[in-house]
Write a protein that binds this DNA or RNA. Structure first.
Lengths: 258, 258
DNA sequence: GCCTCCGAACTGTGATCACAGATACGATAT
DNA sequence: ATATCGTATCTGTGATCACAGTTCGGAGGC
């Protein structure tokens, strides 16, 4: 829960060299606890769709894989449980929650409410540098859609969206949206995969491209209402392509983590 | 994270008595882990406004007060940190977050987005029994407003609101709203206290009563749009009465927990 | 008086262990 | 073949301890 500015290497010595009170300069070192590192690895695996609904994890199994004791894994899983990304059953099993149509609908309703608000705020608050980064990330998304690796497309879409929401400069809102994506985000893999097959939806990527472009232009125009509407449409259109009735969200099972 | 249906006493024996295979009947026993019980105690204390912004807690201090080891307290605090109710600083202090005007505005924006959606859903999903309970809780709220104990008014307001949101039958939405109330809810104590003083806002309680009544009637009429608007107005009007500029949200300091 | 240093105490974090509950499997009885 | 029981194993939970980082107070130097 500390800041996540990353770990930077010491800068090279100044040209003046190590002289007197102007000695070598070192950048601050940001330290992450084991708990934070375990949490981040699990979060990334969930977001990348490496777990399937119903997959179970055990504290000792994950700890063994990471080469840590159980404690940091417990704390990371407690946080993920609070975020709804994993659930602890009455028989004490820890698993990725099963998905139902009702739950997915609820998640999309909440996402529309929060992410459209974030887009509205981003339209007035994004800096020029942030707008350029958002545009660049959208180009990445379009580029990855031409290749065969759906995992890369999923990640590029996530990066694009979160760049927009980060530009809203609303930390609590961003945190809540992150929780929602932990629950619903991996499900984007399913229509992505099907759009790469002959029997998949043909208008899926095209609709997504259009909404993203509308969003980017709305941000450029500082038009919050149009930005919010673009996000709403993106979410609603994507949600039409989710199949929940007994069909697993991922074509290949990742297996249990332990 | 197990269900919280509470612990029920065994029912009295049937009139048939203990005969053969129809022996005495026992209700299921719901067991709570220590972590869950510690979490619930801390959550209730926060919601009741017993902590002030900036109050710090220590794991060992809280554990000593509860007579437990540090483990369940750690897990409870980890959950509360994920929910934004406490924060862990870089120097490892655990404290109730400081409040700023920007953060309070953000919380209210999010609350409007989510709670109005919950009210809209409740208007179509609440059962007759739930509507009656909501009305009864609103009467409780009005009754407590006539007494001098603002803590009771705060609690009654919370019970009323959460009965409405629970009737939406949207578990993820309810969980997110709970997190928001953990952060912003205690702040309702401030205008409540000031409304009991001669220099306090005179229209504060009156506006709240009116919005609650509008909400209840809208739920009765199954009018989601009007229900959402009543919640929105309730939140927005209450937010006008919050003072953040250096003024602590609570007139008396609760002190540190450890 | 101010600054610096050192030691003690406090604190969160991670490791380890014990305990109790849940599950799976094999053996036995019907 | 099915049901029951006992045992071993696994698992989350809670307790305890050690470690490393942080803070605070006192002593000494300038």
């Amino acid at each position: 829960m500390t800041s996540e500015t990353g770990q930077t290497a010491p800068r090279p010595p100044d040209e003046a060299g190590c002289d007197g009170e102007n000695g070598p300069r070192f950048a601050p070192i940001t330290h992450f606890t084991l708990y934070e590192r375990v949490y981040e690895e699990l979060r990334k695996a969930i977001m990348a769709g490496r777990f399937a609904s119903g997959d179970s994890l055990t504290i000792r199994g994950v700890a063994q894989q990471f080469g840590t004791s159980a404690m940091p894994v417990r704390e990371a899983l407690r946080r993920l449980a609070t975020e709804g990304a994993v659930e602890v059953l009455a028989n004490r099993t820890i698993r990725i929650p099963l998905m139902t149509k009702e739950r997915l609908d609820e998640l999309h309703t909440i996402r529309v409410a929060l992410e459209s608000e974030a887009a509205r705020l981003a339209a007035s608050r994004a800096t020029e540098a942030e707008l350029q980064a958002i545009e660049s990330l959208n180009n990445d998304f379009i580029e990855t859609s031409r290749a065969s690796d759906v995992g890369k497309t999923l990640a590029a879409n996530q990066r694009f969206h979160f760049a927009v929401y980060a530009a809203a400069r609303a930390p609590t809102l961003l945190s809540l949206i992150g929780m929602l994506w932990l629950q619903a985000g991996p499900w984007l893999l399913q229509p992505l995969r099907r759009s790469r097959r002959q029997d998949g939806p043909r208008d899926y990527m095209g609709a997504s491209f259009a909404h993203h472009l509308t969003l980017v232009q709305a941000l450029r125009d500082r038009n919050g209402e149009r930005a919010a509407e673009a996000i709403r449409s993106d979410i609603v259109d994507a949600a039409k392509h989710f199949l929940v009735d007994g069909e697993a969200p991922f074509d290949e099972r990742s297996g249990s983590a332990a």
